[in-house]
């Protein structure tokens, strides 16, 4: 299990990186944290001619919160996101998701840009970015553009970046006060890849009922499904004990789940229901310091 030979390029600056990308196009594969890419290289499932190492680019290593946006550089590593005071204050869901990825050592190296562009259907950050309607800031020698992640994510392992584009930053809208975000990740075994996951953003009305509701589900190797208008029927619903299960049941019923190698559709559906129930229950639960 040794990788095939490749040419190695270390990006010295953002401009250098953009030039390399413009020259090499699709054959210049970005090496960020490498925690997903290098296993593929070691297994010889991927053999790019050129690797462009961006680990030392300080221009991609930033965390800011301004103008209602949390801006995270593409090279910021999971562990830093999980522990960064700005992320924890403005976007606890993102910090929490980062803290649950893989193992401790993986989180020290893995990056948010790498995770989002890999677009693994069961990964944590794609789920969070979908839920929050995050925007990716993309750069190339041709200029910069900002694209909602929901639009970039075409299908699992397939993000609509141009051949010469790289991710500079991720912009997460800072949730408004009163918006609760919760996530539930289900693993078949500790440390393994998630089998299914659910994240929810919910704003309660004055009675403690549902004012706004967005849910994202990842299961069965599908592109994570964003449910928004599909849940309009629950808006205005009161905070009764059966509400989480009702929402979860609705969600599971409309997902186009199929049997996978890991689990049959019936099981995936049950796990999705469970994850959604737990998320919505937590999002509706009164919290200390907040009006009931």
């Amino acid at each position: 299990m040794k990788p095939a030979p490749f040419a190695y390029h270390r990006a010295q600056s953002l401009d250098h990186l953009l030039r390399l990308k413009a020259d090499l196009r699709g054959d210049g594969v970005i090496l960020a944290g490498g925690q997903s890419l290098v296993p593929m290289l070691n297994l010889r499932l991927s053999r790019p001619g050129n690797l462009i190492d961006i680990n030392d680019l300080v221009e991609l290593d930033h965390v800011h919160a301004r103008d209602g946006m949390l801006r995270i550089g593409a090279m910021v590593r999971h562990h830093r996101i999980a522990t960064h005071p700005l992320v924890r204050r403005h976007h606890p869901l993102v910090a929490g998701m980062a803290s649950m990825i893989g193992y401790h050592a993986i989180r020290q190296r893995g990056t948010i840009g790498g995770s989002l562009t890999l677009a693994d259907p069961s990964a944590h950050f794609p789920l969070a970015a979908m839920l929050c309607d995050a925007t990716l800031v993309l750069r190339s020698t041709r200029g910069e553009r900002s694209v909602p992640y929901r639009a970039l994510y075409l299908s699992p392992l397939n993000c609509a970046l141009e051949d010469d584009e790289i991710v500079r930053s991720v912009l997460f809208p800072i949730p408004p006060p009163g918006c609760r975000m919760e996530a539930e990740i289900f693993h078949l075994n500790h440390g393994g890849f998630p089998l299914a996951a659910c994240a929810v953003a919910l704003t309660a009305d004055a009675r403690g009922g549902v004012a706004t509701l967005t849910l994202v589900i990842a299961a069965g190797g599908l592109r994570p499904v964003v449910l928004d208008r599909e849940l309009d029927g629950f808006l205005g619903a009161g905070p009764d004990a059966g509400l989480p299960a009702a929402i979860a049941g609705h969600v599971a019923a409309i997902l186009p789940l199929e049997d996978t190698a890991k689990a049959p559709a019936a099981y995936l559906s049950a796990v999705v229901r469970r994850c959604a129930t737990l998320c919505v229950t937590r999002a509706l639960a009164p919290r200390a310091g907040e009006p009931a």
Binding site: L188, K262, A263, P264, A266, Y267, A270
Partner: peptide, 15 residues
Amino acid sequence: LSPVYLHGLIHGHAI
């Protein structure tokens, strides 16, 4: 005794 197997037994759709 995987979760998938046990769930199937519990809910009568043994796989």
